[in-house]
Write a protein that binds this DNA or RNA. Structure first.
Length: 644
RNA sequence: GCCGUUGUAGCUCAGUGGUAGAGCACUUCCUUGGUAAGGAAGAGGUCGUGAGUUCAAUUCUCAUCAACGGCUCCA
């Protein structure tokens, strides 16, 4: 007998060799049907597998994240089974579960799968799922596994086998499909009741662009049709807050073929957003001791050779213009220009930290396939600044930058993000990263200390650093789930050396400053794209391009409406009047759809009393108040940059 | 850059081998209406661009550009 401990602390005895599934069945048949996998001593495994010693056991059902990914991984096998049935001879690479669903990568040879085929494959999957084939786990020796795939002529699975050692190799079989797989899987195919193949894409083998491109099919599956319907509905909802859609509807920005890809044109409403963000940034930075500078949009090749950017990033800079035998590049970053400003006059330790900020535009030749609305563009307004400081000052300076992020995040109510400490990969020193092993280690330790000392939750990621030093990135997700870096705070121990920057220290010796590159608001483009999705277009009053719209009941009151508009404008409030010959219901509807925060309805009653009937977007009628009172309240809401 | 899909009016989309349609938006007129769509009329598109096939191309073929979904990249 063995002792099995349950999550509630209860311990029960079972016969040695019993499976988690059988234990579930002993509790209730209903539970057994719902069990998808088992967590044994914290390790997820097949619910079928025999338990041969004491263990703590958790039966995993659909509501457990681990069970979901097991379910999706099994769905990927089902996908492969369906494809093998319809396209015999297809070679499979890997088919993991992802955050929302699963995919399988395959080599179709000369054949092609079209989007129409996806519907057929879906059907086939449903058919196969109904057969309720169990997922059988087969332990196999490496030699046998190699023989099996050699006979099949499957170079992909043979490649996978190379990385595995004997004794840990398993196959899984369901129906007619056998795959090299470490598992775990759900007990059988029947629970997979609702399937949607969502997209057909290409993906480089092993994620390397020099390799062959495989065909990838993405899909998602659920235990019930309703859950699939709900998921598809949620996707529709997410699309409604896509910044590209809202950006168009709210007149924020536009793109034009004649201007060029990735080069947004900021419309008047979008320009107000930029100006408000810059106003916030300038106030914040002035208070934090930054000075503002302005630098040209181009510079000579020699500067980018000095900075070391050219060897790393030439491909993602616009090609140079030749003038008088010199090559000039459009700037892709402000740093080198700022270093030259630091270097313009001799510096004493008394002038450090030297903090300079700029809101200039930079130009990056992003790969055409990477462009994405406002989130990834070729012309970007950086919320950029550089801090030159001593080693002793570094900790406080870096910490202050982090605190500045958090202050901004509070203002905008941003709470869904991940702080990512990006480190170098020692194997790539001298290639992707400057070859200063000691400095890397020192600065990485300093940055980590800032995060730990400030109790900031973070994740560490290898091989994501900038070429000149480690950094902290703030990762966010777009409405459709794509990940982006919103803000960044980077250490640079290298540019100071490259540009021969120095200051005179207390002992009257020259010393190289450390440099912090920071952009708490990232780029205006990405930040505004993010904010559009974050607020679903319903900006807080201080940011809203149009803050108040005055709606006369009929044009008899147009004159009064315009007086109210003037009073608002005089108080610095962005206001306009709806002077169309429409009914009030129509005017309200249109204004609601434009997500203008306040509507002031004025008619006979309001005009005679010098009032306005206030209506808040999304909230409805708030009642009448004197014009002056509304102006005062609205002004207060704007000044405090209140988020609703 | 690579794989796949798409490209018709300002927007969302229908449609056809014989040079085009709807709804919303827009303009004008009627209506002067009290908290999410009042009515009528009108204007608006060389069907992304270039070439080929054809008596004839927006429709078929090819190329190209752009957008979209991924992959790769992101100072």
């Amino acid at each position: 007998m063995i002792n099995i401990k349950f999550p509630d602390g209860a311990i029960r005895q079972y016969e040695k060799g019993i499976s988690a599934l059988a234990i579930a069945r002993s509790i209730s048949e209903g539970l057994a049907k719902k069990v998808l996998a088992a967590s044994v001593n914290g390790v997820v495994q097949d619910a079928h597998r025999p338990l041969d010693k004491d263990a703590s056991l958790q039966l995993l059902t659909w509501n457990d994240a681990d069970a979901k990914s097991t379910f999706w991984h099994s769905s990927a096998h089902l996908l492969a089974e369906a494809i093998e049935a319809q396209f015999p001879g297809v070679k499979f690479w890997v088919g993991p579960a992802v955050e929302q669903g699963f995919y399988y990568d395959m080599d179709l040879g000369d054949r092609k799968i079209t989007e129409e085929d996806l519907a057929l494959i879906e059907k086939k999957m449903a058919e196969l799922a109904k057969k309720d084939s169990s997922f059988e786990r087969i332990e196999i020796s490496k030699q046998e596994a190699i023989r099996y795939f050699s006979e099949k002529g499957d170079e992909y699975k043979l490649d996978l086998l190379q990385g595995l050692t004997d004794g840990e190799i398993t196959f899984y079989k369901q129906g007619a499909f056998i795959d090299l797989c470490r598992g775990p899987h759900i007990p059988s195919t029947a629970p997979i009741k609702a399937i949607k193949l969502t997209s057909l894409a290409g993906a480089y083998w092993k994620g390397n662009e020099k390799n062959k491109m495989l065909t990838r099919i993405y899909g998602i599956s659920f235990p019930t049709q309703k859950e699939l319907d709900d998921y598809l509905l949620m996707l529709e909802e997410a699309k409604k807050r896509d910044h590209r859609k809202l950006g168009k509807e709210l007149g924020i920005y536009t793109m034009d073929d004649d201007v060029g890809p990735g080069l947004p044109l900021w419309l008047p409403n979008g320009t107000i957003l930029i100006e408000e963000l810059e106003r916030l940034a300038k106030e914040t930075e002035t208070a934090a001791g930054y000075k503002r500078v302005v630098t040209p949009h181009i510079a000579k090749e020699s500067m980018y050779l000095t900075s070391g950017h050219l060897p790393y990033y030439a491909d993602s800079m616009f090609p140079p213009m030749e003038m008088d035998g010199e090559k000039y590049y459009l700037k892709a970053m402000n740093c080198p220009h700022h270093h030259k400003i630091f270097d313009a006059e001799p510096k004493s330790y008394r002038e450090l930290p030297f903090r300079i900020a700029e809101y200039g535009t930079c130009y990056r030749y992003e790969q055409s396939g990477e462009l994405f609305g406002l989130m990834r563009v070729r012309c970007l307004h950086m919320n950029d600044a550089h801090i030159y400081c001593s080693k002793e000052q570094f900790f406080e300076e870096f910490k202050a930058v982090n605190e500045m992020y958090l202050k901004y995040f509070t203002i905008f109510g941003i709470d869904k993000y991940v702080m990512r400490l990006s480190l170098h990969d020692p194997a790539k020193l001298g290639q992707k990263y400057v070859n200063e092993p000691v400095l890397w280690q020192e600065t990485e330790a300093m940055v980590r200390k800032v995060l730990i000392d400030t109790n900031t939750p973070f994740v560490e990621v290898q091989d994501e650093a900038a070429f000149y030093g480690p950094k902290i990135d703030v990762q966010i997700w777009s409405a459709i789930g794509r990940e982006f870096t919103l803000a960044t705070n980077q250490v640079d121990f290298n540019s100071g050396i490259k540009f021969k920057l120095s200051y005179t220290n207390k002992e009257n010796h020259p010393e190289t400053p450390l440099i912090i590159h920071r952009a708490p608001l990232g780029t205006h483009e990405r930040f505004i794209g993010f904010l559009l999705e974050h607020y679903a277009g319903k900006f807080p009053l201080w940011l809203a391009p149009v803050q108040v719209r005055v709606l006369p009941i009929s044009d008899k009151f147009l004159g009064y409406a315009q007086q109210v508009e003037q009073a608002l404008k005089k108080a610095g409030i962005r206001a306009e009047t709806d002077d169309r010959g429409e009914k009030i219901g129509k005017k309200i509807r249109d204004t609601e759809l434009l997500k203008i925060p306040y509507m002031l309805v004025v008619g006979e009653k309001e005009m005679s009393e010098g009032k306005v009937a206030v209506r808040r977007q999304g909230k409805g009628d708030l009642g009448a108040q004197p014009v002056g009172e509304f102006v005062a309240l609205a002004s207060q809401e704007i000044i405090s940059r209140k988020s609703e």
